[in-house]
């Protein structure tokens, strides 16, 4: 792992490149740079957290992908222009496999995009794998299905991004719950960060937070207080995060043994052949 100085330098350079790309209107480059930038920021944040934790002061809930705290110039909010980009941004914001409905909820609340229909998201999966087959390097990222930890088959309703670590794309029995809790935390963080100006923005996020928080225990209904909600989600996440990671990590070796395509898109299942015709 890079040192903190190396990380900071790289982050600075990426930010400059991003500004330049923005200035010349190069959306593709900007997208690519942002990806790298966020990965670097995540690494840097982990280093910070470890440092803070070992100094035994509680670190604030910090959802992956959120903007780094600090005096650096923050980039203006980028709005997704295509469906696949919107999916990628949602997944990256939350940092866990999400189902299409969750992606739609987040995208609508945070970016005000309206996904035309669920079809757009679903057809993505098929298109992405086809595109990969034609030319694996043709795109900066692919939307992939999450991979079941036991069968290594593609999961039905959970999506990930190809640029993620293998470990983060695996689905353990805990992962759906973990992903939900991370979605709650991401929403809470977004509410906190959202400027009060701009009438619609914050309200949408608060409504989403209230809706997502409804099934959490010991909370009054219709509550949209990010601090309170965040605490409840955080405490539950703490109880299951390790087990979730352990199961996922245990499948890494088997996953790595698969072909490149199967590593990204899952191992197809053998169809049982029986001679008996069904009734």
């Amino acid at each position: 792992m890079e040192s903190i100085e190396g990380l900071s330098a790289r982050i600075n350079q990426l930010q400059n490149e991003a500004n330049e790309a923005l200035a010349r209107g190069d959306v593709d480059a900007l997208t690519r740079i942002r990806e790298h930038l966020q990965a670097a920021e995540r690494q840097r944040n982990r280093v910070w957290e470890e440092a803070l934790a070992s100094a035994s002061s509680p670190s604030p809930p910090h959802s992956p992908g959120s903007r780094a705290e600090g005096p650096e110039e923050s980039l203006p909010v980028v709005t997704p222009t295509t469906a696949r980009d919107a999916v990628r941004m949602a997944l990256t914001d939350v940092g866990a496999p999400l189902d299409p409905k969750q992606i739609q909820l987040w995208g609508t609340a945070k970016y005000r995009t309206s996904f035309a229909t669920s079809r757009a998201v679903y057809s993505l999966r098929r298109d992405e794998q086809r595109a990969w087959r034609q030319n694996p390097d043709g795109r900066f990222f692919y939307i992939c299905p999450a991979i079941s930890h036991d069968t290594l088959a593609p999961a039905r309703a959970a999506l990930t991004v190809s640029t993620w670590d293998d470990e983060d794309r695996i689905l353990s029995p805990y992962t759906p719950r973990v992903a939900y809790l991370k979605l709650v935390l991401a929403t809470a963080a977004a509410v906190k960060e959202c400027p009060a100006a701009g009438p619609g923005d914050r309200r949408q996020l608060e409504v989403l937070l209230a809706k997502l928080a409804r099934p959490l225990p010991n909370l009054p209904p219709r509550l949209a207080d990010p601090a309170v909600v965040g605490e409840v989600a955080e405490s539950e996440l703490a109880l299951i995060a390790t087990a979730d990671e352990d199961i996922r990590r245990a499948s890494l070796e088997r996953l790595a043994a698969l072909s490149d395509e199967q590593r990204l898109f899952g191992q197809p299942l053998k169809v049982h052949s029986t001679s008996r015709r069904h009734a």
Binding site: D99, K101, Q104, T117, S118, R126, R156, A157, Q267
Partner: peptide, 12 residues
């Protein structure tokens, strides 16, 4: 009106 319908016959 969004009712998530899981797709059938997804190719693996």
């Amino acid at each position: 009106d969004f009712v998530p319908q899981l797709p059938d016959g997804d190719d693996a």
